[in-house]
């Protein structure tokens, strides 16, 4: 099986590694970089447990080859907190009981992060549509919606303080 070297930024850190051509990004992250936050819940790109941020877009890392990420910027759940301070979406999920078993949570958080980057003031309908690529079997989504609304509010407050 042929291999090649890939270089990418993962959570702000330059990573360089030898991968097989066929290695999926999710396996590269989990098994070569030991970033086990993103999970695998299916093989058809439906569940979204493997969601990461790739060059500013949410992607399902089970459907991206590692070699496609040459020179890319990748963000996983492990990169959301900064300087030991939780990101507002992480805080929101905790405060609003937006998780139960926790398996969908890393993908859901990274997706929520991108959703709020793209649309800082989403309606409930926009939130529900925005996370519809991520399945949760435990919460029924109601508290996830509340968690994202909580995060949106916190991010807005933080922005008005810094302004």
């Amino acid at each position: 099986m042929s291999t090649r070297t890939v270089t990418m930024s993962v959570n702000g850190e330059q990573r360089r590694a030898e991968v097989e051509d066929r290695t999926l990004l999710i396996h590269f992250l989990r098994e070569q970089l030991n970033l086990t936050g993103p999970h695998i819940g299916c093989e058809t790109s439906h569940c979204g447990a493997c969601t990461v941020d790739l060059n500013g877009v949410s992607v399902k890392s089970c459907t991206v080859l590692a070699v496609q990420c040459e020179g890319a910027e990748v963000l996983t759940v492990e990169g959301l907190a900064e300087g030991g301070v939780l990101h507002a979406v992480q805080e929101g999920f905790h405060q609003q009981h937006g998780l139960q078993c926790g398996f969908c949570t890393p993908g859901m958080l990274v997706r929520s992060y991108r959703l709020l980057q793209d649309n800082p003031d989403p309606t409930e309908e926009e939130i529900r549509a925005g996370i519809s690529g991520n399945l949760c079997r435990c919460t029924g989504y109601q508290n996830i919606v509340k968690a994202i609304q909580y995060a949106a509010k916190r991010l807005k407050e933080a922005q008005s303080v810094s302004a």
Partner: peptide
């Protein structure tokens, strides 16, 4: 609030895989 959330929201759960 749940005590166990901290690890799950930071990608530090420990699932079998």
């Amino acid at each position: 609030l749940r005590k166990e959330d901290a690890r799950f929201i930071q990608g530090k759960g420990n699932y079998v895989d």
